[in-house]
């Protein structure tokens, strides 16, 4: 299977501190890959390198077939990104937001029109098209934000804690959107705090102190660590980190 993301000994140092330490992994096309780790474990730094925002110190990595050292511009065109804050312009209408994000990804006007209609129908937001985003409930903002991250049909979408602050039912609905996206062939790279969500991923990696300590399907990991939930797996690994210190 074609690799969507591939890293080999990817490392990032800030002075004498090694934030990301020799990580090597592969994410397949259309896979939902959970990227887990405690705060400060190096998740964000790794993700920034993969998004072309940060220059790695050493190692190799390619995203959507492009090199993170030399082809950052191409990477940016081929990935989507959604952050935990949903990151929409609250004082713009839904339509204006779609328009803006469409243009900054270089879509043509006709393409944007087409996408706007599709998106509004899919999210059932036709009637609210001209109301300000500020007036939308949180769950809708989340869905809109996700759809905007996909507006340019990226090969990979990075979701940075996309379900923060949302109720369990909305989270469940959101995961259905993620499944739909993965089914259509888009790779989903997701970080999360919620360990129940880790169970929804095809495979997960767990980062501890800049290193990937475990990487496999949730079921295999549970077997390996003799745990009944991902929460336990995570706890066992994270405790390892604190005893080392």
């Amino acid at each position: 299977m074609e690799a969507s993301i591939k890293t080999e000994n990817l490392t990032k140092c800030f002075g004498s501190f090694t934030a990301v330490n020799n990580i090597t992994f592969k994410v397949d096309k259309g896979e939902i890959f959970g990227f887990l780790g405690a705060n400060g474990a190096g998740k964000t730094t790794a993700m920034r390198m993969l998004c072309g925002l940060l220059h790695p110190t050493s190692g190799k990595a390619s995203v959507a077939g492009f090199d993170v050292f030399t082809q950052r511009e191409q990477i940016k065109k081929n990935i989507g990104y959604m952050s935990q804050k949903f990151s929409l312009y609250e004082d713009l209408t839904i339509k204006e937001n779609i328009n803006f994000f469409g243009t900054i990804y270089g879509l043509s006007n006709t393409k944007i029109k087409e996408k706007t209609e599709q998106l509004l129908i899919r999210l059932n937001l036709m009637e609210e098209a001209n109301s300000l985003v500020a007036s939308l409930p949180l769950g809708w903002k989340q869905k809109l934000s996700f759809s905007l991250a996909l507006i340019h049909d990226p090969k990979i979408v990075f979701l940075d804690e996309p379900t923060g602050g949302v109720d369990p039912i909305t989270r469940r609905q959101f995961w259905e959107l993620i499944y739909e996206t993965a089914d259509s062939g888009t790779t989903v790279f997701v970080t999360t705090h919620y360990m129940d969500e880790a169970e929804y991923c095809n495979r997960v990696s767990i980062m501890v102190d800049g290193k990937i300590e475990a990487i496999d399907t949730p079921d295999n990991l549970k077997k390996l660590f003799d745990a009944s939930t991902m929460d336990e797996v995570f706890y066992l690994l994270a405790r390892g980190a604190s005893t080392q210190e």
């Binding site: 511009e73 990104y81 804050k85 949903f86 990151s87 312009y89 900054i104 990804y105 270089g106």
Partner: peptide, 13 residues
């Protein structure tokens, strides 16, 4: 503050 800057910097802009 609202996080839109991150989204813009990840974009090809």
């Amino acid at each position: 503050e609202t996080g839109t800057m991150r989204v813009i910097t990840v974009s090809p802009l």
